[in-house]
Amino acid sequence: MTQDATLPATRMVPLREGMFRMPDRLDAPAGLLGDRCRKCGESFFPRRVFCAACSSGDMEDVEFASTGEIDTFTIVRQQPPNSVMVPPYAIVRVKLDGGPGVQTVVPTEDLAGVRIGARAQLLIRRLKEDDAGNTVVSFMARPLA
């Protein structure tokens, strides 16, 4: 029997609780969990308790589209302290379809195709293993050909 590469060897845990809908396998589309202001309509990721635009506390939870367009990018070439990402990797700002702009990373193997205006898919990717041996995952972008 061939092993499915998208099934993690150990239990998957999110980098931070409540940031995205947790799938049962790696490389699944990442639905980011944010919120929208009922008063002024502005949407946010990560969630805010009070709206940054109008300070209203009347917020509703939203799951955003996992696709969007790369608005800008840079390639990080030097290891930042405390990060598990290995350079070179990209930082991209993705304007999600019908949602807010979010910053995330593109790992080395997906760098081809990173450019302003490219379509991108947010995916749940392996970030690291924690002390308990769990597979820690977070959302990353992959440019669509």
């Binding site: 800008t72 990797y89 930082i91 990373v105």
Partner: peptide, 20 residues
């Protein structure tokens, strides 16, 4: 989460704007 994901990089904040 920004630190762990490698997003908290000061030169990158300027670089993102420079690319745009």
């Amino acid at each position: 989460f920004q630190s762990v994901m490698g997003l908290a990089v000061m030169p990158a904040a300027y670089a993102l704007q420079a690319q745009r």
